[in-house]
Each structure stands twice: as structure tokens, then as C-alpha cells.
Design a protein around this nucleic acid. Structure first.
Lengths: 143, 143
DNA sequence: ACTCGACTTTAGACAATGTCTAATATCAGA
DNA sequence: TCTGATATTAGACATTGTCTAAAGTCGAGT
């Protein structure tokens, strides 16, 4: 089970143990993402950081999210064109996306462990699996 | 097994049978996507259409792809931020994405039928499943 | 063939998202 | 405290996709 970060201090510790310089901006981004309990876009996070006391530039939010992602400290989900949502949950899991509301929900992958996925060529290493199950409340418009 | 379109005439027939007005632009877009045998971005398609005799505007390429997608005549895959790749293969299938080269390959979903996916709430209808298996040749940079 | 109305295409403006650059600021180690 | 390496910043830039208003095309009914 993943440790949930509940304070800036814990975020700082986590960064240190991974060998990432725990600057105040990085700590803040990581902490806020955990605190929000939701999936956030970079712009959401930028906005949310700057309505409080903190002041973090747009570029830093983007850079930091890319950095955290490259260290596996956050997850990224592509739902629509030109929109990445970030996810504090770094356990392997899948997503359910409501195409009407835009709501994105985590789904455990118990029934469908990544190992069960179709085989990949021998010369490649799997470095991630994205599963997005799209749902809606209505039937699609064209039958 | 899906019928592969090999001529503009077949593209036109397909559009007609689905009740979509088979304009020359739509026929051309649908035909070219099948002819290319690859996954193409809207811009690729726009470029490729206009180096030949045909002349199709950017807006029409985007509109047409959205239209075809809403009728299930083409598939769309999100691989990177702000980049949709379109796919002539409308059979249920998954994708393998090489994060280094950007190469996107179809993978059958025989081993992993969509029905095997985690349950979704009763009040929602599943309207699609995206599975992207990310692979690379090297280990990721941060161990 | 003609006309009308509905649909389609078009060019270009616009919007949203993310990246890059050069200057400045900050940090860690000597 | 110094110094080099690293991080942050503002703003320009690039890319992708959407919107709008005008012009073009299609087809049914006459």
C-alpha cells in the first residue's frame, strides 16, 4: 500500500529519499497534488498554488510535474486532446473517464493485473500501461 | 474481420451505408487513412492530402475526423499531450507505444477481451476502452 | 433546368496547452 | 564566504485543435 502524503514535511522526505532536490516549489507541488485527492491538470495546480500565499511560476509547475513523473512520484493520465491530468496515486491502477462530465476515477486493476496484458516483443521493456475505460450515462448519438 | 478499404469507391460506399453524406473530402480522408496503413495525426493527414492534387482545408480535416470518429468509422488514440493519432482499424484492439521512437503499433486484444475489464457502475454504459502499453528499449533513466 | 433550404467547406482568427530561452536566484560543498 | 551547479522565472514561442462568418455545394421538389 502506498504511503499517502499528508504534510509538506512528508513530501520533502519523499523527495530526499529519491534523490530529488527538495526545493520549496517541488515540495509544494507534490504536497498539493496529494492533498487535493483529485486528478489535476497543470493549470489547475498552477492556479491553486497561486491563490494561496505561495508563488510558483507556470514553467516551474510544468517542469516539476515532468520531473516528478520521470521519477515515478506522480502519474499522468491523458484523457482528452491536449490535457494531461496528474495523479498522486502511483500504485498500478486504471481509470474510468466519464466522457460527459469529464470526471476521472481510479479503478484498481485487481481483475486485470498488468502481467495479464498481451505479450510485448522481447527486445522491449514495458514501462507502463495506461487503461482508460470510457463511460457515459446515455447511449452514443449514432447507433 | 473488418473490411479494409482499398479504393475511394469503397470509402464512398461505406459512408453511404452509414448515412453519412459522402462528400469528396470525406471520401478522401477516409480512403487515405486506410491507404496509409499507419496511425496518422490530423496534421499529417492534412499535409499528405495537400501534397497531391486534392485540396482540403485544415478545418475540414479536423471536422471530418471528428465526424468519422463519432460514427465509429475511425479510431482515435491519445499518445502524447496534445496529439491525437487516428486509426483506420475500428476493430476492438489495443496499442503498443514506443516512448522513444513514437512508433504506435496495434495489438490484438485476444488475451484481454474488453469484458474482462473491471466492473463499471450500473448507471453507466461503457463506451470505449483505451489500452496503451508503453514500451522502450532501454531502462528508464531513474532506477 | 431552376430555386430554395440545408448542409459543407473554407480561411483565418482564436483558445488552450505545453516548451524553450535567457536572465536571475538559490543551494550545497569547499 | 565563495563558486559552480542547479532551479526558478517571465515571457516568447510552438503546436494542436476549435470557432466563426462567408462562400460553395448538394439535392428534393417543382
Amino acid at each position: 500500500m502506498m504511503k499517502r502524503i499528508t504534510s509538506r514535511l512528508e513530501a520533502e522526505e519523499l523527495l530526499k529519499t529519491r534523490g530529488v532536490q527538495p526545493t520549496s516549489q517541488r515540495v509544494e507541488v507534490l504536497y498539493r497534488l496529494h492533498a487535493s485527492q483529485r486528478h489535476l491538470a497543470a493549470e489547475d495546480l498552477h492556479e491553486c498554488l497561486n491563490e494561496e500565499f505561495t508563488r510558483v511560476s507556470r514553467a516551474t509547475v510544468y517542469n516539476t510535474l515532468n520531473l516528478l513523473k520521470s521519477y515515478g512520484l506522480v502519474g499522468a493520465v491523458l484523457v482528452d486532446a491536449g490535457r494531461i491530468l496528474y495523479d498522486a496515486n502511483t500504485e498500478p491502477h486504471y481509470h474510468m473517464y466519464d466522457v460527459e462530465t469529464g470526471e476521472l476515477t481510479d479503478i484498481g486493476c485487481g481483475v486485470l493485473p498488468p502481467e495479464a496484458l498481451p505479450g510485448i516483443p522481447d527486445d522491449r521493456l514495458m514501462c507502463g500501461v495506461d487503461v482508460i475505460i470510457k463511460v457515459s450515462k446515455k447511449r452514443s448519438e449514432h447507433h
